[in-house]
Computed example of a mutant assay.
Amino acid sequence: MSRSSAGHSVLVVPVPELETYVLERTRHYDDSFVSADPAFVHAHITLLAPFLSSPTTDDLEHIGKIAAAAAAFDFRLDEVRVFAGGTIYLPPDPAEPFAALTAELSAAFPQCPPYAGLFEPVPHLTVDHIAGGVDLASTRSTLTPYLPAQCRADRVSLQWYANHGCRTIAEWSLGGSPGQGEGAEIACIT
């Protein structure tokens, strides 16, 4: 999991149903990305990354309005796939609500194209990488106790990723009050 040690922010939908598995794999690859923040969920489906380094109160309010306008929804994770680069992932079913949130957030923050514009966003939950004896078959096998997973997308989380600094900055309920992210501590993001 190669990420800059300086860090970056990301907007995600947490997936607590897969937290045990993803947390173990995070520890395996780079323990410095294990968060001590109890609100932080390592298992997630990315909506927009990288996001702003220092979001303003207006930015947070705008995210809150987008989250409030979208209803919470159920989804299922049961298929294991691999991207061409070797990232093993679970596609959510349905994927459309995630894609719609990404499109809305991208339109609201055009300076933050998904994945820095390097590739087209595909809703997914990363679970592993092909390397060092890990392959699609071994990952399917280790995921057997967790799948199929019935999940609920009920919030958008603004998270900070950095070595020894992963944390939740703000969260908004899907279909909730647009002001839920207000007052979030953002001053420490650099």
Rank of each mutant, 00 (worst) to 15 (best):
A116D: 11
A43P: 00
A68S: 15
A70R: 15
F109R: 01
A95K: 04
R81E: 15
Y115E: 05
F119C: 01
L118G: 03
H42T: 11
L158H: 01
I189A: 14
A108D: 07
E185M: 11
F33T: 00
F119P: 00
F33D: 00
E79M: 15
A36N: 06
S35F: 08
C112T: 07
H28P: 00
F51E: 02
C188S: 15
A70N: 15
A49H: 08
G183N: 10
E182C: 08
R155K: 13
V34E: 01
A184H: 08
G175N: 09
A49C: 01
A170T: 04
P123L: 09
L174G: 02
A99F: 08
S141L: 10
H62D: 04
V12I: 07
P55G: 03
N163V: 01
C166M: 06
A39M: 06
A108R: 09
S157A: 15
S157G: 04
P38M: 09
A100K: 13
H124S: 05
A67V: 09
I45P: 00
F73G: 04
S157D: 15
P110W: 03
H8G: 07
A103K: 11
A67K: 12
G117D: 03
G165R: 06
Y146M: 03
H129M: 10
R76S: 15
E19R: 08
A39P: 00
P110R: 03
